[in-house]
Amino acid sequence: MPRVLLLHTGGTLGMAGGRPSALRPAAFFQTLRRRAPELFQLADIELELFSNLDSSEMQPELWSRMAAHLHRRLPEFDGAVVTHGTDTLAYTASALSFMLRNPPCPVVLTGSQRPLGEIRSDARLNLIDAVLSALQGPREVTICFDSHLYRGNRTRKVKVAEYDAFESPNFPVLGTLGVDATFEAGLKTRGAFRLHEALDPRVFFLKVYPGLDPALPLQLLPHVKGLVLEAYGAGNVPIAPELGRSLQPLFIQARERGIPVLVVSQAYRNGVDLTLYESGAMALAQGAVGGADMTPSAALVKLMQGLAEHPRGGEPLARFLRTPVAGELSVGRPTVPPPAPKRRRPTRVGRVG
């Protein structure tokens, strides 16, 4: 039988107790064998307990440890499944996609909206689909949820109380597991399997909103090494000086301090193009990098890795942020439609004679 590593990190899937009382971590493996014996008919599964945490406790240090562990273990298996809480699942999937370059087998993350021990749990099917995806899916880091396989660094959690909790707004699914299971080819392998576990977590995520006082992020600059800015639309921010809330000083001071600024969009679909509007052009002139159609979670983790691998910043870091590492952003095609042409006012024609 093919061999699959099942690495448990915690989350709702492996918890017990529940509604109306609070969920609590529980012995996962016993429940797994009792509730999902079909898994062991698909593959020779080796169970490992990496951690038993609510995913809100997941931190960059744990990503690095997890990536190093998987780097050691993956060559021994035909696939790997990582069980994880849904709240930070997209962050962890993004981190592993950047840290595990050219994995020798599929690495599939999954979780559930209800614990495996509950009657109406989605955990059992998610686990079965994840193991099948680890055996037949593309050799990259993915998320398997609600019978769909997504590229890990393209995925966002969009729902809290429904089973179809994840979507990939700017990239097609890599697999559909219905009556038949079909998979796409995924990323092409480029070179040897390598580990890039270093991260610099001194990054701040700033969401632009009406009424944001620029004095607040300006006070943060001395304490951070990088900034992910979630702007409006194609990368727009307020820059009108007469209203007193221009963010132009933020970009200017960030450049003076050598702090990279990576701009992503609040829009769910499409992405950033800093050449379209005046405020984007200002950001470009001050050295900001457009994040194209990267998800906010992928941008945050990629900047952490970029700071660790290019501590001097500058153009090497900017080039790293602009270049796809694991299929996390689109290049070579527009990520936003061109602006609509301006309407011309009709000309009044006077009556003649």
Rank of each mutant, 00 (worst) to 15 (best):
N52Q: 13
L149W: 06
R344S: 08
P222L: 14
S51P: 04
P20M: 10
L220C: 06
C144E: 14
A288S: 07
T9C: 06
F320L: 02
R269C: 02
R19N: 05
G271Y: 12
V301L: 13
L89D: 04
Q59P: 05
N126Y: 06
G11M: 11
P222T: 10
M304K: 03
E76K: 04
E256T: 14
R312W: 11
S265E: 10
F50V: 09
Y209V: 13
L149N: 03
G178M: 15
D78M: 15
G332A: 12
L216C: 07
N153L: 10
V81A: 14
R333I: 05
R257K: 13
T295N: 15
L329A: 05
K225F: 00
V160T: 00
G313Q: 00
M304L: 05
P311K: 03
L229G: 12
Y91G: 01
I239H: 08
L303R: 06
S97V: 01
A318Y: 01
R3V: 04
L100G: 02
L276A: 05
F193C: 00
T182P: 01
G314V: 00
S279H: 03
N126Q: 14
K159G: 02
T335E: 09
S64G: 15
Q248C: 08
V352Q: 03
D164W: 11
K157T: 00
S279C: 03
I239V: 14
A281C: 11
P60I: 12
K157N: 02
A326V: 02
R344L: 15
L127V: 10
L276D: 07
A254E: 14
R345W: 14
A22Q: 04
M58D: 07
G353I: 08
F205A: 05
E48G: 07
L135M: 15
V301N: 04
H84V: 06
N236L: 11
